[in-house]
Write a protein that binds this DNA or RNA. Structure first.
Lengths: 338, 338
DNA sequence: AACGAAATCGGAATCGATTGCATGATTAAA
DNA sequence: TTTAATCATGCAATCGATTCCGATTTCGTT
């Protein structure tokens, strides 16, 4: 079978490749008659232009990189679905990378993207990311970047987040009002943007309700679930064990459930729990989990909408350095006391 | 800032682009001295070859397409993690596409991949896929394809699956031994390879234990969860409601839990349930869900290993037309009666 | 000193699609 | 009938990296 490229089409039609190209691109210079002939054959042979030849000439790849720290995660999966929904309509393709929360992997991935492989990047940084030198390279190369959720404050671009401070505040307030005296905040990292904001809400809520804050109310967890279960188990076995937990990451809520299983404690009687989570099955857990769920699909769509504007309209200005906030939704279920 | 390409490097070093290219590729024709100079500058300027120029010449994209029917799904997410783990080590990139279980989308995606954009495809077909004309195009174009889980029997290539027949049989047997009299099999489609096999196991188990099978024991569900909850609700409200369900897809198990909430029935007392599922939180559901979980990560790794062999070794033969089976693991929990 | 082989490197074509410029053909206007 | 204008198409360069082939230099050997 011969390679079906533009030269082959041209030969079959007894035309020059340039004419075929123009016909396919509906140029005004080509007669209707010729266009019809060309399009007919292209359709018959199921011809599609070689994307790499086009990319080489146009310096556009029609490809976008999506970088996330975790794939088995409802939030990120939904965001990607949102991004894909929009970009697909514009003929863009998605390269998806998982950093597994590791800075080294994040670094390596970004270095692969600096050479024109993608037209833009949409990312949520790893929990290990505190220095941002590897990100600044993108800025120097003028590669458009949008951050969502776990953003990078120092990087001047548009960022999409949820109202983390407010959600942290509201979740904490809720626990206090349910009678919790010894509150704990669980997180993956102290450097993460979302953790900082959610923790800030936690602290302010404590203060507003006349409670002291002490640093050991913040527990920084690990990557491995087993380690976290142990960590939380120790916490629950301690003298002044917490009676209320705000988990800033979905997987930590799961670890709490599993850790509690190993004790004689009961949720919510002995321990009230609320967690940031996009699980669609929060209400069939035992007990149903109170959640702060983020508008993941909307975030994905918003990111992609902005991106498509920038990429499809020429001379579109660089992304403004600003933060766009879409509110999360808090849903009280039995884990925090009905 | 000048574009950093091979010509720029050549000019800086007072060499020809061809020499620079050879030096970068560690050719024997280039002296050590020159190689050192070239590599030093390349490193300093953080030079990476333009991937599209290389692809155009080599007819290789170092890119693989992964096509799945659903992204918010633990099984598929784990498989992709497995694929990425292997392919990343070989410098390959992953384009990930979600068909949302729609045949039209699957068709469209495949048509985008026929022009050299990817070197191979790893996919699990949508539940609507019964005709396979759109897949056969890939075969004609000699584009390597590997199927996993939801395979396409008529397509001659290597396929990775789990022991669906056996799992279906074992799950059904378990329900029977727990005393279920009126069993029902829930599925997304009658055409899907996995559904057929799992159903076959269901039927044979019934027969082996002296139970009649009637076609209305098979319920074909919808895409929308709300519809499924209603469908299952009706089922549970009927005269001869089932007392045991084998759900062939994770999301259907979730729908069952939610449907049961609307009734006065109790799992497992009134209804025993076991489901194919890769949820990591099956044991914190209320009640904990008995699962048949597939070795997702292993499947992904196996697919990618085979693929990498084919793509990195020249003159590697086409994929054999065979099926490789990796067994699932059945875990009994309280939803099927302790 | 001279010759040949090996070691190094440069020139130019190539991959496939696009596009500025030139050319040829057709038609309308003078 | 001639000229100008419009229309339709072809030629050739380009994008960046690679590689075949040819050219030059270096070195060892007689």
């Amino acid at each position: 079978m011969p390679e079906i490229n533009i030269k082959y089409l041209a030969k079959q039609l007894n035309l020059a490749p340039s004419t075929v190209s123009r016909a396919l691109n509906d140029s005004y210079e080509i007669s209707e008659k010729t266009k019809v002939r060309v399009l007919a054959l292209a359709k018959e042979l199921n011809y599609h232009p070689n994307p790499y030849a086009r990319s080489l000439r146009d310096h556009k790849s029609y490809t976008i990189a999506v970088i996330i720290p975790e794939r088995i995660n409802n939030f990120f999966a939904q965001v990607i679905d949102g991004i894909e929904k929009v970009t697909r309509q514009h003929g863009y393709h998605l390269l998806v990378y998982n950093t597994h929360e590791e800075l080294d992997i994040e670094r390596k991935i970004l270095s692969f993207l600096l050479n024109g492989r993608v037209d833009a990047i949409v990312m949520s940084v790893s929990s290990q990311t505190s220095k941002i030198d590897h990100l600044l390279q993108l800025y120097q190369k003028k590669l458009p970047v949008i951050f969502f959720d776990r953003i990078c404050d120092e990087f001047p671009t548009t960022k999409f987040i949820t109202n983390d401070y407010q959600s942290g505040y509201d979740g904490t307030k809720h626990l206090i009002q349910k009678g919790c005296q010894r509150l704990v905040f669980l997180t993956l990292s102290k450097d993460l943007s979302i953790s900082k904001e959610r923790l800030r809400g936690f602290k302010v809520a404590l203060k507003d309700y006349g409670m002291e804050f002490s640093p050991n109310q913040v527990i920084v967890c690990m990557q491995e679930e087993d380690e976290n279960i142990k960590l939380i188990g120790d916490l629950l076995g301690s003298e002044d064990r917490p009676d209320g937990i705000l988990a800033s990451v979905e997987k930590l809520a799961v670890a709490i459930y599993k850790a509690v299983r190993n004790t004689s404690l009961k949720i919510p009687q002995d321990l009230k729990l609320i967690s940031f989570s996009n699980m669609k099955i929060a209400d069939i857990l035992d007990p149903p989990l109170s959640t702060i769920s983020q508008p993941a699909m909307e975030i994905g769509i918003a990111c992609a909408d902005l991106l498509m504007k920038k990429l499809t309209k020429k001379d579109h200005p660089e992304f403004e350095d600003r933060i766009i906030m879409i509110p999360s939704k808090i849903t009280i279920r039995r884990s925090s006391g009905e």
